[in-house]
Amino acid sequence: MEPFEIIDHTADVGIAARGETPEDLFANAAAGMFSIITDPDNVEPRTSRPVTVSGSDRADLLVAFLNELLFLFETDRFITRRVEFDRLTETELAAVAHGEAIGPQHELETEIKAVTRHELAVEQRADDWHATVLFDI
């Protein structure tokens, strides 16, 4: 199975991500989100940013995490390529996002206004973890 798939929504767009561990799942969700914004093959992990967020449960934490990466993108022009986790619990995470600043080599395709909570799901299945997240475009 792919680490993430883009899913259809009439007005917006979403991702269905999976991972063997919650860390994989969160990292793949981040990769999925940035693949909507720009072609990830053109993004190099040249610098990094610390990311620390909390949430009321695992789904809320995933939204907070993706929102933080979007915030870095918008205010610091930082595109995340991959993420390493120092700590990930049900309600808290500390991680390092690797990527680079927006440059002329990046064609920015789609602006994501927000990570929504509509039909939001994070669940553990038999062998792996799954998440569904919809974005407001």
Binding site: S56, F71, E74, T75, K113, V115, T116, R117, D136
Partner: peptide
């Protein structure tokens, strides 16, 4: 981005408030 963030900030507050006011709805959003 300003409006997007105002909305997102409020959703987090509202989720907690719903529990306090005993409001139950079919969608988290």
């Amino acid at each position: 981005g300003l409006g997007h963030q105002v909305c997102d900030d409020s959703l987090r507050t509202m989720e907690k408030a719903m529990r306090r006011y005993n409001i139950e709805l079919p969608d988290r959003q």
